[in-house]
Design a protein around this nucleic acid. Structure first.
Lengths: 364, 364
DNA sequence: CTGTTAGCGCGTTCAG
DNA sequence: CTGAACGCGCTAACAG
């Protein structure tokens, strides 16, 4: 939604202390105070201003000068760098070091608040270590045509990939990778949500309310996270005396979920609760219920999964499992950084939290 | 929502034709077929294999060899490059050329499907011209603490910024910029939605249904797009005999919108239609209506703006204005590329489309 | 038509 | 403790 970001106002002065009020952000070439074309300062410029040599500048700014450069000289270098607004040229740095301090974040889509939050968490940790993130949405839709996004193969040090099979990354073979929200049985280190536990909590909640015939509106997507959810629900229901499970599948799409849930609810012995694999599926279930004149939650209970925006936009608000996306991104990035420093990190799992709202009640 | 992307399966063979089944994506260092550490092939390797010099390789692969290199030699170079799986080193390229073929996409947030679509459109156009996109979410939330995202100042050729004031980019002064969904009165070229026209269509629709007292649930955000919407609605209502407008504002947030809309509806002479600046605000308005026992659309009509996921998840489905986010991204990138090639592109405006669904009806 | 040369800006030896 | 020299991989000039 355009413009939905909070308004952010920033001081008008640019970096380097120039606050002359000129607004040349549109022009292709900025000009320095003297009118010459302003080519950005290099480490040589800093050296010259500080009266030392390039290598000294390099040492000082890299922070490994103790015992090799006199404190006075170091101070002079820092001051010169600050005065010129010096920032090292990334291209030259990468070329020399062979590392880019850039991580590729591979996501199935950007069209979901969930992945936005994931990015935020990852970016926070990355920034703290001087790493940059390039987002690489795996083309969704558009069919199996050739990948329209040029793969930045070698411009990255590592990969953080979410919600996909590790095999999908064969293109990047040879690059360190950490998988998020993916099958921990793969070869790569993984950071996951404990979705099985989350689903058990959902099951415990609805079974505790007295429900026995549970309808499962499952996502028609063959991915680890949904397989886990399905297994956990089935196990919990089976372990309950009198428990019974009916399952339908649907694409993650409101209209598809509505059709699938409608089919389930039209059966002569319909379930008293619909446990959905995803909040979007739950939105479809709401529609099916309303279509059949069933009141939620008095006539039918419904649960979701993920706790995205939708959950509180629906009426009644949705009982669901909150998955801490931002923490997932942060933990994943931490794991990847550990790996890049030569470690062999262990896979981890983050708990989900059951959020009980107005869509669940005892069976009618 | 984790896993909500379509499943994508890719051929298992990596680039360069190696399909030996090894899966070393986890290891930090890949090893070549012979077991040596596999340092990626350089243009010199290609030259050696093809029996020519580096510069010839450069010319051929850059595609500007016609009339300078014999077709046979060019063919040999191409073949050698393909056999080695050669890909030019981006860092070296950028260092030499001073250009990065990378564009920064500045967004207020990533937590919205709208901006995901915008990205997709921009990426499509960029890829067609060999450009890469780095997404740079302007820190939303987190307070005015220091920017946690390291600004990639010099690693970019241009900036595409959406839904903000151009002044917010003062940090990037000197870089070519195209603004999206922002005030066209600024100095930078702009690609916008014609939100005023969209709002006029909404107004025409509800006024045509017979509504005269219009409630405006406005976004409490001082941005061009919302100012335009407000002005257009006010003008349309004023131009109608008997027309009357009541306005409340709310943060773009379901709960805030519910409170604001509730206040409007509790007035003794309440409006018969609520025109909302955004779909999320409309979701809040639904809640307020239900709270007061008003049926939508029989007792109260509601409209939104943007046509995001929410619009069809609500019940009844929301009459709103569809804003083609993907086209916006594509048009914006095209404009920026034109600029980078030395042109001085004109600002443009994209039309929105009124989508009439079930939330609007004649007044009771 | 092709090869040789120079240098982009940086980090790192190696002499002094 | 500091400076001069080298090379990362690539492209653009210039020679042959």
């Amino acid at each position: 939604m355009p413009g939905s970001g909070r308004q952010t106002s920033r001081p008008a002065a640019g970096p380097g202390g120039r606050s002359d009020g000129r607004s040349d952000g549109v022009d292709g070439a900025a000009t320095g105070p003297s009118g010459r074309p302003a080519t950005r300062p290099t480490s040589r410029d800093v050296a010259q201003l500080a009266g030392v040599s390039q290598s000294t500048v390099s040492l000082v700014l890299a922070g490994k000068w103790t015992g090799r450069v006199s404190p006075g000289t170091a101070e002079a270098v820092h001051e010169a760098a600050a005065r010129l607004g010096y920032r090292p040229n990334q291209a030259a740095r990468s070329l020399r070091l062979g590392r880019t301090r850039t991580v590729l974040l591979v996501l199935p889509t950007l069209s979901s608040p969930f992945f936005g939050a994931l990015y935020t968490g990852a970016a926070r940790v990355a920034a703290g270590h001087g790493f940059r993130i390039v987002v690489y949405p795996w083309p969704d839709g558009a069919g199996p045509a050739d990948n329209p996004f040029a793969a930045p193969h070698e411009a990255i040090d590592g990969i953080l990939a979410s919600s996909m099979a590790v095999e999908a990354l064969s293109e990047f073979r040879g690059t360190p990778v950490v998988m998020l929200d993916s099958d921990p049985a793969g070869a790569a280190p993984t950071v996951d949500f404990d979705v099985a536990d989350g689903m058990r909590r959902v099951a415990g909640h609805v079974l505790g309310l007295g429900h026995r015939h549970v309808g499962h509106v499952a996502a028609d997507v063959d991915e680890w996270t949904f397989r886990s959810r399905g297994r956990a629900l089935a196990a919990a229901v089976e372990a309950t005396p009198g428990g019974r499970l009916s399952r339908v599948t649907a694409a993650i799409d409101v209209a598809a979920a509505r059709r699938a849930a409608g089919g389930l609810l039209r059966r002569p012995d319909r379930p008293t609760v619909l446990v959905c694999d995803d909040d979007q599926l739950a939105a479809g279930a709401y529609k099916a219920a309303r279509e059949l004149g069933l009141d939620v939650p008095a006539g039918l209970s419904i649960t979701g999964f993920d706790d995205v925006l939708l959950a509180t936009a629906l009426e009644p608000e949705l009982t669901t499992v909150r998955l801490p996306a931002e923490e997932l991104g942060a933990a994943g990035m931490a794991t990847l950084l550990e790996m890049l420093e030569g470690g062999a990190p262990r896979s981890r799992s983050l708990p989900g939290e059951l959020v009980v709202r107005g869509s669940t009640a005892p069976p009618p």
